[in-house]
C-alpha cells in the first residue's frame, strides 16, 4: 500500500478566516493525503494533535498577523517533544519580508496568497517522500 501522508491542518489562534485552510485541506485530500483538520488551535494544541495523529506534516494557516509570534512556537514545541522530523508549513497572508524570518526559525516552507495548490501539494510530497514531484 502506498504510504499516505498524514497532515494536521490548523488555523492559528483566533484567526477567523476558515476558507483558505479548508480549501487547501480539500486539495491535499484530493491529492491522496490524509488530512486532519483541527480548526482554530494554539501552538500547544497543534503539537498535541500532531503527536496523537502521528502527523508527517503540520500546516498552519493565518491571515491575522500572528504568524511571527505563534508560528515558530509550533516548531519549537515539536522539537521539544522529539518530533523534529515533522515538517511545518505555513500559509496565509504573510508579508514577503517575514518569510526568511520564519524559515530561519524552522518553518519548512511558507505559501503566500496566490500560491497554486499544486505547488503546495508538490512541496509537501517532496519534503516527506523525498522525491521530486512528477513534472507536468
Amino acid at each position: 500500500m502506498e504510504r499516505r501522508i498524514r497532515v494536521v491542518m490548523a488555523k492559528l489562534g483566533l484567526d477567523i478566516h476558515w476558507r483558505g485552510v479548508l480549501l487547501v485541506s480539500q486539495f491535499l485530500k484530493d491529492a491522496g493525503m490524509e488530512v486532519i483538520y483541527i480548526g482554530n488551535k494554539f501552538p500547544e494544541q497543534i503539537v498535541e494533535a500532531a503527536i496523537e495523529e502521528d502527523a508527517d506534516v503540520v500546516g498552519v494557516s493565518t491571515l491575522s498577523g500572528n504568524h511571527l509570534t505563534l508560528g515558530p512556537k509550533v516548531v519549537e514545541l515539536l522539537k521539544a517533544q522529539g518530533m523534529e522530523t515533522v515538517k511545518v508549513f505555513m500559509g496565509g497572508v504573510i508579508p514577503p519580508n517575514h518569510i526568511p524570518i520564519l524559515k530561519g526559525k524552522g518553518i519548512h516552507e511558507v505559501f503566500g496568497p496566490d500560491t497554486p495548490m499544486q505547488t503546495i501539494i508538490d512541496g509537501i510530497k517532496t519534503a516527506i517522500l523525498g522525491t521530486d514531484p512528477p513534472t507536468g
Binding site: 483566533l14 491575522s64 500572528n66 509570534t69 505563534l70
Partner: peptide, 22 residues
C-alpha cells in the same frame, strides 16, 4: 483587531499574537 472582533479583551490568553494587528 481580531480579539475585539471576537469579543476578547487584549489581555486574554486567547488574544495572544493578535492584539492591534489588522
Amino acid at each position: 483587531d481580531l480579539p475585539t472582533i471576537r469579543g476578547y479583551d487584549s489581555d486574554d490568553p486567547e488574544a495572544e499574537g493578535n492584539v492591534g494587528y489588522c
